[in-house]
């Protein structure tokens, strides 16, 4: 019982962080599935959502601020794609990646400018920030809400991709860009839709993530971003259930390692996982086999 009581907070925290990672990882996996691009700016979009919340909640009631945060983040994701990735559609992959890094640099510098380099205190969300006690472990309610909300959103997204027209178009584009275009699919709108969904989920993820942490800084998107990309690779890039499972594994493992007192090595673990999975099973857990043509 004492073992359970000691380790339960870490496992709970792990499941919660895993859910938040999952919401970000979906954005990575969908974009990579379609554009074969690591969207380096995605972690910063997630951070920007946190910043929007900080600034909007200062002047608006939460009921108005939260929808506005979601809207602004979606708009940001959409604009990034239109401005920085669309003009490079026929350029080599490396150029698009560099453009993504440039966008990330730009967003971080903008955040630095607007915050003056200070960590901004994240607002307390009523209900979500309340503390609850389960099996003797004290935690915030957000810890319990996150996994449920994540699973609901993922199921919703899966249904969306499976049954709606846009979803089918997305699958077609990720299978074969050129053929999809020949079949009359508006590739650009499909890509925009992907970025919109990814940014929306990242915004939800940021609401949950930063409720657990006290503050947002311009660089607080970087590390979660990288970890979520690793989660997406681990689950098999392009696969949504894969990304979710990968994110939960990374979140839980990270917190168990922290619980053992090896905080420094939680990052090491993430990247060790990346290298091992790429060497052993490059397609990830649920990835489809891709054949490279010479």
């Amino acid at each position: 019982m004492s073992f359970l009581q000691n380790s339960l907070p870490y496992i709970l925290a792990g499941i919660s962080v895993g859910g938040q990672y999952a919401l970000i990882a979906i954005g990575y996996t969908m974009v990579y599935g379609i554009l074969r691009l690591i969207n380096f700016a995605h972690g910063d979009v997630f951070m920007a959502a946190g910043m929007f919340m900080v600034f909007l909640s200062a002047s608006l009631p939460l009921g108005a601020a939260i929808p506005l945060v979601l809207l602004l983040t979606v708009l940001l994701g959409f604009l990034i794609e239109r401005a920085a990735y669309k003009p490079l559609r026929s350029a080599p992959r490396m150029s698009v990646m560099i453009s993504a890094i440039g966008v990330s640099y730009l967003i971080q510098n903008c955040a630095l400018y607007f915050t003056g380099g200070l960590a901004k205190v994240y607002p307390q969300l009523p209900w979500l920030s309340d503390t609850v006690t389960i099996f003797g472990a004290v935690t915030k309610r957000v810890t319990l809400v996150t996994p449920i909300l994540t699973i609901l959103l993922v199921v919703g997204l899966s249904l969306f991709i499976r049954y709606t027209k846009v979803g089918i178009a997305m699958r077609a584009v990720s299978k074969d860009f050129e053929t999809a275009r020949l079949m009359g699919i508006k590739v650009n709108s499909v890509i925009s839709a992907t970025f919109i969904i990814g940014s929306l989920l990242a915004a939800v993820g940021s609401l949950l993530y930063f409720t657990n942490y006290a503050s947002v800084t311009p660089t607080s998107g970087g590390m979660p971003g990288l970890k979520c990309f690793v989660a997406a690779v681990f689950g098999g890039i392009g696969s949504i259930p894969g990304a979710v499972i990968g994110a939960f594994i990374i979140g839980i493992a990270e917190n168990i390692i922290k619980g053992l007192g090896w905080t420094t090595f939680s990052v090491v673990f993430t990247f060790a996982l990346l290298i091992i999975i790429l060497l052993v099973k490059p397609t990830g857990l649920f990835g489809e086999k891709a054949t490279d043509k010479v």
């Binding site: 074969r36 691009l37 690591i38 992959r93 490396m94 990646m97 590390m223 990288l226 990309f229 690793v230 690779v233 420094t264 090595f265 990052v267 090491v268 993430t270 990247f271 990346l274 290298i275 790429l278 060497l279």
Partner: peptide, 24 residues
Amino acid sequence: PVLRLKSDYLAIATLGFAEIFRAF
């Protein structure tokens, strides 16, 4: 290990190692 990876995976893995150094 890392140089067996291709293009963007290599980028992420090296980026990760740089972060590991910093933590270490």
